[in-house]
Amino acid sequence: MKICKVLFIFFTLNLSAQQKPIETIFFDFDKFDLTEQQTGVVSNFIKKIDTSKVESIQIYGYCDDRGDDDYNFRLSKNRVSTIQNLLVLKGFNQSKIVILEGKGRVILKPDTVDNLNEIRSKNRRVDLIVLNKNSFGKEVYSSFKNKLKVGDKIYLDNILFDIGSSKLTHNSKKELDKIATILQQKKNIQFEIRGHVCCTPEIYSDGIDKETKERRLSWNRAKTVFKYLLSKKVSSSRMTFQGYGNKYPLGKGDNYDRRVEFFITNL
Results as ranks from 00 to 15, higher is better:
residue 3 I to R: 14
residue 3 I to M: 10
residue 6 V to P: 15
residue 8 F to I: 08
residue 9 I to C: 11
residue 10 F to D: 12
residue 16 S to W: 09
residue 17 A to L: 13
residue 20 K to S: 11
residue 21 P to N: 01
residue 25 I to C: 03
residue 28 D to I: 10
residue 29 F to I: 08
residue 30 D to C: 03
residue 39 T to L: 12
residue 42 V to H: 01
residue 50 D to C: 02
residue 52 S to F: 04
residue 55 E to G: 06
residue 60 Y to I: 02
residue 65 D to K: 09
residue 65 D to Y: 07
residue 68 D to H: 04
residue 70 D to K: 15
residue 71 Y to S: 11
residue 71 Y to H: 15
residue 71 Y to R: 15
residue 74 R to H: 09
residue 74 R to V: 10
residue 76 S to M: 02
residue 77 K to S: 13
residue 78 N to S: 12
residue 78 N to Y: 15
residue 79 R to W: 04
residue 88 V to N: 04
residue 92 F to R: 09
residue 93 N to G: 05
residue 94 Q to I: 10
residue 99 I to Y: 07
residue 99 I to F: 03
residue 103 K to W: 08
residue 104 G to E: 01
residue 104 G to N: 05
residue 106 V to L: 12
residue 107 I to H: 15
residue 107 I to E: 15
residue 108 L to R: 01
residue 108 L to D: 08
residue 110 P to W: 05
residue 113 V to F: 10
residue 115 N to V: 09
residue 120 R to G: 01
residue 120 R to D: 11
residue 121 S to H: 08
residue 125 R to A: 13
residue 127 D to K: 01
residue 129 I to F: 06
residue 131 L to C: 15
residue 134 N to V: 04
residue 135 S to Y: 11
residue 136 F to L: 15
residue 141 Y to V: 01
residue 143 S to P: 07
residue 146 N to I: 09
residue 148 L to F: 05
residue 154 I to M: 06
residue 155 Y to I: 13
residue 155 Y to G: 11
residue 156 L to C: 07
residue 156 L to M: 12
residue 156 L to H: 12
residue 157 D to S: 12
residue 157 D to Y: 08
residue 158 N to Y: 15
residue 160 L to C: 14
residue 161 F to W: 07
residue 164 G to L: 00
residue 169 T to E: 03
residue 169 T to V: 06
residue 170 H to T: 14
residue 171 N to M: 12
residue 172 S to F: 03
residue 173 K to G: 08
residue 175 E to K: 02
residue 177 D to W: 10
residue 178 K to F: 11
residue 179 I to K: 09
residue 181 T to G: 07
residue 182 I to C: 09
residue 182 I to S: 12
residue 183 L to W: 07
residue 183 L to N: 02
residue 184 Q to W: 11
residue 184 Q to R: 11
residue 185 Q to A: 14
residue 188 N to M: 06
residue 190 Q to A: 09
residue 191 F to N: 01
residue 191 F to D: 09
residue 192 E to F: 05
residue 192 E to Y: 04
residue 194 R to K: 11
residue 195 G to T: 02
residue 196 H to L: 13
residue 197 V to H: 06
residue 197 V to S: 04
residue 199 C to P: 00
residue 199 C to D: 04
residue 201 P to L: 01
residue 201 P to K: 10
residue 202 E to Q: 14
residue 205 S to F: 10
residue 206 D to I: 00
residue 206 D to A: 00
residue 207 G to Q: 05
residue 215 R to P: 00
residue 218 S to T: 03
residue 219 W to L: 15
residue 224 T to R: 02
residue 224 T to M: 00
residue 226 F to S: 02
residue 227 K to Q: 07
residue 229 L to V: 03
residue 231 S to I: 07
residue 231 S to M: 04
residue 232 K to E: 13
residue 235 S to D: 14
residue 235 S to Y: 13
residue 240 T to D: 10
residue 241 F to A: 03
residue 242 Q to Y: 15
residue 246 N to E: 12
residue 248 Y to W: 08
residue 251 G to D: 06
residue 252 K to G: 08
residue 255 N to P: 13
residue 258 R to G: 00
residue 260 V to P: 01
residue 261 E to A: 06
residue 263 F to N: 13
residue 265 T to E: 10
residue 267 L to D: 05
